[in-house]
Design a binder for these strands. Structure first.
Lengths: 143, 143
DNA sequence: CTTTGTGCAAACGATTTGCAGGATG
DNA sequence: CATCCTGCAAATCGTTTGCACAAAG
C-alpha cells in the first residue's frame, strides 16, 4: 500500500549479506508495509496482484532467508498455518478467535514477569503472552 | 505406565455423554497418565505397544470427541504439530527449544495480568504465558 | 435395533525438496 | 564465471474424510 523506502529494503538485505533479488525485496517490503500477520497464501496473493514475479516456492524460500537473517519472524498460534511478521522486537500477541487475525501487543503492555519461580529443572530464556479474544470487527458483526 | 483408575475413566466418559469404547478409554487414560504433551504419533506408538487396538484415524476421532467434551485440550506452539493435554485447567506452558517438549506451568506461577490497558479495539477474554528455554535434560546434554 | 465408532485407504492442504535454467555479485 | 535464486512439479507430512463393517446403548 504505502510507498515504502525501497532503498532501505535493498540496503538492509545487503547489510545482512543477502542477495538482492526483486522477489526478496517484494516479500520484505510487503511485510514491512503491513501490521497484520499474513500467511504465505495471503502474501502470495497480495504480491502477485501488484507484480506477478513470485511463485509459491520462492516466497517460502525468501521467507526462510529473511528469517535466518533475523529480519522476519514466524508466528504460529492455535491454527495450523504459519504467519509472518516483520516486527522482530520482543512483543506479545492478541489473537481474534473469530477471524484468526493476530495483532501485536507492545512489550510494555504488561509488567515484566519474574521467571525465577519456575521449577528448577526448567531454564527459561524468554517468554511471551498470548491474549485471546475478539477484535472490534468481529465483535460488531456477531453479537 | 501407572495403573490408572479405569473406572474413573469410564465414569467420566459416561458423564459427558460419550460412548464408552476401548479405544477412547485407552486414549484418555493414556493422556491422564502422562505429563508431557504427546503428539498423535507419540500417542499412537505408545497405545499400540500395550494394546494394538488403535488406528490413526481412530485416535484422531477419539481426541476430537474428548476435546468437544472438554476433557482434553489441544496445544500448538511454534512447531507445526498438534499436541494433547488432559489438563484442562488454565495454565501456562514451558517449551524446550531443543527437544520441543512442553511442560505445564501452574497458573499461580505468575501474578494475574491486567488486560485493561490493551488497545480498546481488542476485547480480551483469556491469556496465557509461553516460556521458552531449555529443559534439564537438554541442558546437560549440550553445553 | 438404532446410532455412533472403528479402521482402512484415499483425499487434502500446507510446507519442503529436486532440479534445470537464470540472475546476482 | 562461480554461486546462489527462481519457478515448476513432485514429494512429504500431519490431518481429515468417505465408507463398509462392527460395537454400544
Amino acid at each position: 500500500m504505502s510507498a515504502l523506502p525501497i532503498n532501505l529494503v535493498v540496503q538492509t538485505l545487503k547489510e545482512k549479506g543477502l542477495r538482492v533479488t526483486p522477489q526478496r525485496c517484494a516479500v520484505y517490503a510487503n511485510l514491512l508495509g503491513r501490521t497484520d500477520h499474513p500467511t504465505v497464501e495471503q502474501l502470495l496473493r497480495d504480491l502477485n496482484q501488484s507484480f506477478p514475479i513470485s511463485s509459491q516456492a520462492t516466497v517460502y524460500s525468501s521467507l526462510q532467508s529473511l528469517r535466518e537473517a533475523g529480519l522476519v519472524r514466524e508466528v504460529l498460534l492455535d491454527e495450523g498455518v504459519l504467519r509472518y511478521d516483520a516486527n522482530v522486537e520482543p512483543h506479545h500477541h492478541f489473537r481474534c478467535r473469530c477471524c484468526g487475525d493476530i495483532t501485536d501487543v507492545a512489550w510494555s503492555a504488561f509488567p515484566a514477569l519474574n521467571l525465577s519461580k519456575l521449577p528448577t529443572n526448567l531454564h527459561p530464556e524468554t517468554y511471551e503472552v498470548t491474549v485471546h479474544g475478539v477484535c472490534d470487527r468481529c465483535e460488531s458483526t456477531q453479537v
